[in-house]
Design a protein around this nucleic acid. Structure first.
Lengths: 343, 343
DNA sequence: ACTTGGCACTCACAGTCGCTGAGTGCCAGA
DNA sequence: TCTGGCACTCAGCGACTGTGAGTGCCAAGT
């Protein structure tokens, strides 16, 4: 009974604080939301909520502010998903449909997400580890150098220049190219090492060094750089909170420039279905203690391949942002299927 | 005589202001630099410099601050280039040498530049318009889709998915690929349109739609996206000036997210030799009125191909930053030649 | 057992005031 | 042409105060 009202109070506090960015007091709360009770009652509830750790006061005789824990409860139990309006959905789809290739899809996605959420957006390129190889190409670029290009079914292209100790012959390169093509086409990256075990057998002894160095670079490219690329957009939104808030942007910008950090933020989300929300100190990353990260994975075919999401202050519009992230992830999945699919 | 001292005073003001970030007065100026005259004399000089528009006072009874014009004069006539120390040079070279491919060179360059200048760094990918085509590849990815991959002599890879109205045959694709290879290998992008004029002649009438659509995408990819890619790093440095300075970072971050803006900043520099400095309002870009942009072009072989540079507050260390930008541009040129060169 | 009005209390914030000191402009003399 | 002296200006700082939003607690009402 009172328990229920207490939660309503917490919900109201979160909503008001997100809207005004000011500590909210008992009186204004009663005025704005029509809870049918007096400020004094609300104060009692607030005291209890504070006891339990869901809200806090910046200083005595100030209003209350939600804690990370408060936001957590709000996200888990108190917020309703607000679906996007259908004009919004159409706008998303139309915008993404115009993309001409994978880079363009990623670039458009990240800008779109930043724009509709008014936050800093992140998009991870489709993972190579679950991709399959569509084509592999070797191009001699000088007497001792060969450029290797790998094309995946998600449309991603990886390249690498391979340096050989001895000059290489055009014919050997051609032979290796076609053998690699036969051995690897349609294989997932995980299957590649096994598929390559016997690759050097047919080659003459003097050609084997070339084969070996190409293969080692190939394996390296597939594992080491498998998930590396991440795009970001909308960092300017971080500066919107006029220098006042407990959001010093410098540590945030610093954290967001670390590939490793971004990978940790997005990587985990790929393993989980639905929208993932990490609030404040729940983030496993130094520098992001005052931010929340909302992520969702997207898929290509039936395989989850990568994640996208946004980073913003903990006092953000969770339901709205979650809905946007969810929607964009779905549309990206669809676009990837349409553009690359049908095999 | 007095003219000479006046310039010395301006130089001293710029140096002090850059070092302390505080308006500098006549007394401290005399103390720190040993100009052989009294504060009163300096004051007269300052009044003259202010009259001419090189310095200004934030308010009456404060010290002087250089204006954009003052920095301009400083850069043009008063500063000496300070060469990098040789450990620094070695560190740069070693760091860039470890790059494995073009993406890696660019990524390392931009991070390096941000790190040594302690500013926000920009690096433009080698322009396609002056590049030559090393290899062109067509890969069927479904019955009606073909992926086109273009490899340039700078190691850059462009890709594009081409959609055809009718199903395409493997054989036709192979034929087109080899003809394109013959027609385009070694051509610069500018020469491509001419080289393609007769390409569809040998094909049967029913194959020409395919040829046409591939060619049109090819041309589009080469022109439209020719100079598009730019990497950025070190945005966190913009936040270093503890919200105090006339450097509101939000407009700066917003400006730096616009590809068009970045292109304007870097594009012009490609046409000019040496290091280019644009100070405050000299920048042709809204949002960067309080920043200076220092750029230099880099080259591949004898062709200038693109630019790199940094963006920072107008009160920056011009000689040091110019030296760093210059040095990095030279090393990038060298790396590109070494890695891709020897044709 | 809750709720409510009342009341005393706390304390951030904004405004006022006065002082200090860095810095200036100007002038008369060297 | 330089210099010392002098009067003047004014941002910044600290101290002080009043105001008001907001609280916690209690006793009375339902």
């Amino acid at each position: 009974m009172q328990e229920e009202r207490r939660l309503a109070v917490l919900r109201a506090i979160v909503q008001d604080y997100v809207a005004t960015h000011e500590p909210v007091g008992s009186k204004t709360l009663v005025e704005r939301h029509n809870l049918g009770v007096s400020p004094a009652t609300i104060r009692n509830d607030m005291a209890a909520l504070e006891e339990e750790g869901y809200i806090a006061q910046p200083h005595t005789s100030a209003g209350r502010v939600p804690t990370d824990l408060g936001y957590r409860l709000f996200v888990d139990r108190l917020s309703e998903v607000k679906p996007l309006s259908s004009p919004e959905r159409r706008a998303i789809q139309r915008f993404l449909d115009e993309a001409v290739d994978l880079d363009d899809v990623m670039a458009r996605t990240v800008r779109l997400l930043a724009q509709i959420t008014q936050q800093t957006a992140l998009v991870q390129y489709p993972s190579l580890t679950r991709s399959t190889i569509r084509h592999i190409e070797l191009v001699p670029v000088s007497s001792t150098r060969v450029m290797m290009v790998i094309i995946t079914d998600t449309g991603r292209v990886e390249q690498r220049t391979v340096e050989c100790a001895q000059p290489v012959e055009e014919g050997t390169v051609g032979d290796l190219r076609s053998r690699l093509g036969v051995a690897l086409s349609g294989k997932t990256f995980a299957e590649v090492p096994e598929a390559l075990t016997d690759i050097e057998d047919p080659f003459a002894a003097e050609d084997r060094p070339l084969v070996r160095v190409v293969v080692s670079h190939l394996l390296e490219a597939l594992t080491e750089r498998a998930d590396e690329r991440i795009m970001m957009s909308g960092t300017a939104h971080l500066a919107r909170y006029g220098q006042a808030f407990p959001l010093a942007i410098q540590p945030v910008l610093e954290a967001l420039e670390e590939q490793v950090v971004l990978m940790r933020l997005l990587g985990e989300a790929t393993t989980q279905p639905g929208v993932m929300v990490r609030i404040g100190r729940e983030n496993p990353v130094e520098g992001l203690e005052a931010t929340s990260v909302i992520t969702a994975r997207y898929a290509h075919g039936e395989q989850a391949v990568a994640s996208l999401g946004v980073v913003g202050p903990t006092h953000m519009d969770y339901p709205g942002t979650m809905a946007s992230v969810h929607a964009v992830a779905r549309y990206v999945s669809r676009i990837l299927d349409e553009q690359q699919g049908s095999r």
